[in-house]
Design a protein around this nucleic acid. Structure first.
Length: 607
RNA sequence: GGGCGCGUAGCUCAGUCGGACAGAGCGUCGGACUUCUAAUCCGAUGGUCGCGGGUUCGAAUCCCGUCGCGCCCGCCA
């Protein structure tokens, strides 16, 4: 079986055309809000809080209002009585998706119309279903930005996985997104790295773990740091002088210094990109700190900060007193030796972002929170409206025995995790081959593809499905669990959809959009789930929380599996039912494929 | 010590801008493949939402306190 387009994760930038829909659920919600507001206004009641919410699963209504609770006191009647009045005053004519209103105790319940289901079914059959209409807003998402000092380890991997998903979700939500990786090629650590690379000899270092530049060069970085910490003060002082010279050279715009540093940075970054590309996490642009040193923008920031009322000169260094912004810690923006710091250059970068984008999103580890607050305050000192800046944080991924560190060489390399996961996925596929129900003859290339899609998808889902603020302890068995509530569970639904569509095509069944043939609970529940997808994208984008897509897609898969069991396409009572169900399968496939795509997880056509 | 975050079933997690009996998966126990793929489905089991106060008609959700864990408090990033 050949790999087709559906097997590949779409390129984010590809989503700028095609038909788009605001989504049935979102429109229904807007209608309900409008109707409730109208009813309250008619009753001369306040409309500031409509209390529109989603009822529990066992309630048939799609949305409800709990407004009667709050109004009971004002009206002087019990909530159920108020609810009845509101329901009576609610006008349902003129709305496409509100079918009817009733009450259940204190709740006013709203039920969707046939048109709601019909439109969801039709919209779902479009391949780009879930893509919201263009907002016309440009957003830069900066994520990962790991120091180019060595191979990407699992502790860092949450950033590209979460960050890439944020970028994708924003793209689905209709924004014009660019992903940036901000390259630290000017900091002290990089100068140290450069010195070490030039100083140590390959023969005195351990063999690299992999034949790749990042694995090769990180040995020098570790050796250099170990040397500086070894306690030989005289030798260390000599090294420090050289490191300082490199930093001074960069600051002075010395071309030779830039070349020395890039010789290290470019190689390591190239290796890191190979790892990141496996996830995949791809970037539209790599922005180097040194760009802002060479352009003079960093110096310009220094001059303007120095002239601000918050600037103080203490202990020979220029600092920003940010107590007016509620930050006790001074921000040093120019060292006593005249060199700039990371945050100084980052300020120049952010000014550039503001000039070129409507909104700037940054995905950072929680250890950067203080620095991020200082950055935001400093941007305000520089006269910017920081509403355009959204900084979002994730907690570290730790090993059961502690944290991971590139410098100390502790931790699990991302490559090792992905290799192991793909290998375990391959074992899994092979062990299932004999009992496999479908006879579509998987060849070796298919096994490779499935192992890769499932293995990497499982790792990615494991990380992206959790709230970013929650800490994660990395455990092999848990990260590589392919059971339910994991990527393979959802991917399997996609493969099932593809299998059904292939069989249906062979049987000459053509998909139809025919709601009249889809009356069972399982079918209606599935269409209702399809209808919610765009609203899920919207929620995930608004909160920069891709994990809500992960939750949705898993729950959607469950709904689909119930439908699968109860509503056969090929063995339907007649052709019309088969065609209608096939249309629903198509809508389901688009929902799952795009939900996974928004998370950066591939959707296999067969498993 | 101060700041920020986290604490929900034995385990891993949803739910947290206050609302209908707190939901999944794993685990355990018991069922379902001559059927579009069983990486599936169905059922049972399992919770003082860390603890103590407060606000409210109503609190896992908001406020105060407290305990435990994590991160930060560098002229590092």
């Amino acid at each position: 079986m050949l790999q087709t387009e559906h097997d590949r994760v779409s390129v984010r930038k590809g989503f700028n055309g095609g038909s788009t829909t605001a989504g049935m659920f979102r429109r229904f919600r807007a209608e309900v809000e409008d109707a409730v507001e109208g009813a309250l206004a008619a009753l001369d009641l306040p409309t500031d809080d409509l209390g529109v919410e989603q009822p529990p699963e066992d309630v048939e209504a799609t949305l409800a209002s709990s407004v009667a609770f709050r109004l009971a006191g004002e009206v002087g009647a019990a909530p159920p009585s108020v609810a009845a009045d509101v329901a009576d005053a609610t006008e349902t004519d003129g709305y496409d998706y509100i079918d009817r209103v009733d009450t259940q105790g204190p709740y006013v319940n709203f039920y969707v119309s046939t048109a709601y289901y019909a439109d969801a079914l039709e919209a779902g059959r479009e391949a780009d279903y879930g893509t919201l209409p263009s907002t016309g807003r440009s957003v830069v998402v900066e994520h990962t930005s790991a120091n180019p000092t060595g191979p990407v380890h699992v502790g860092r991997a949450r950033n590209p996985i979460y960050g890439d998903a944020v970028a994708r979700v924003l793209e689905y939500a209709g924004h014009d997104v660019d992903a940036h990786y901000y390259v630290n090629d000017a900091g002290r650590q990089i100068a140290t790295f450069t010195w070490a690379y030039e100083t140590f000899d390959d023969s005195e270092l351990p063999d690299p773990e992999r034949d790749r530049a990042d694995y090769d060069l990180v040995r020098y970085y570790r050796a250099g740091n170990a040397f500086l910490e070894s306690g030989d003060d005289e030798a260390a002082a000599e090294a420090e002088a050289e490191i300082a010279a490199i930093m001074q050279g960069l600051e002075a715009g010395d071309e030779a210094a830039f070349e020395r540093v890039s010789a290290v940075v470019d190689q390591v970054l190239d290796g890191m990109q190979t790892s990141l590309g496996r996830l995949p996490a791809e970037f539209d642009r790599f922005v180097k700190e040194t760009e802002f040193m060479r352009s003079g923008d960093a110096d310009d920031v220094v001059e303007r900060l120095r002239g601000s009322e918050h600037a103080v000169y203490e202990e020979d260094a220029w600092q920003l007193d940010l107590s007016a912004y509620g930050i006790d810690k001074n921000l040093v923006f120019l060292r006593s030796d005249g060199t700039t710091l990371y945050t100084t250059r980052d300020l120049a970068y952010h000014e550039w972002k503001f000039d070129n984008y409507d909104e700037a999103v940054t995905v950072l580890g929680e250890d950067h929170k203080l620095q991020a607050e200082q950055l935001e305050a400093a941007l305000e000192v520089l006269g910017h409206d920081t509403d355009a800046l959204r900084q979002t944080f994730y907690s570290w991924v730790n090993l059961p025995e502690g944290g991971m560190s590139t410098r100390e060489g502790t931790g699990v390399d991302l490559d090792d995790l992905l290799d192991e996961s793909v290998q375990r996925a391959r074992d899994e596929v092979e062990s299932r081959l004999d009992s496999r129900g479908r006879d579509d003859h998987l060849d070796d290339a298919d096994l490779d593809r499935i192992a890769r899609q499932v293995g990497i998808g499982a790792v990615r889902y494991d990380i992206v499905s959790k709230q970013p603020t929650k800490g994660i302890t990395f455990e092999w068995d848990r990260a590589l669990d392919f059971e339910a509530q994991s990527a393979p569970y959802v991917q399997y639904v996609h493969a099932r959809c593809c299998g059904i569509e292939a069989e249906a095509a062979a049987a000459g069944i053509e998909a139809a959009t025919d709601l009249t043939r889809l009356g069972s609970d399982a079918e209606r529940d599935l269409i209702a789930a399809v209808a919610r997808f765009p609203a899920v994208i919207e929620e995930a984008a608004d909160g920069l929380e891709p994990h809500v897509v992960a939750t949705f897609v898993r729950s959607f898969a469950e709904t689909f599996n119930t439908f699968y069991r109860e509503c056969s396409v090929l063995n339907a009572d007649n052709n019309a039912v088969a065609a209608a169900r096939l249309g629903l399968v198509e809508a389901s496939r688009h929902t799952v494929a795009n939900g996974l795509d928004a998370l950066g997880i591939e959707a296999p056509e067969s498993m």
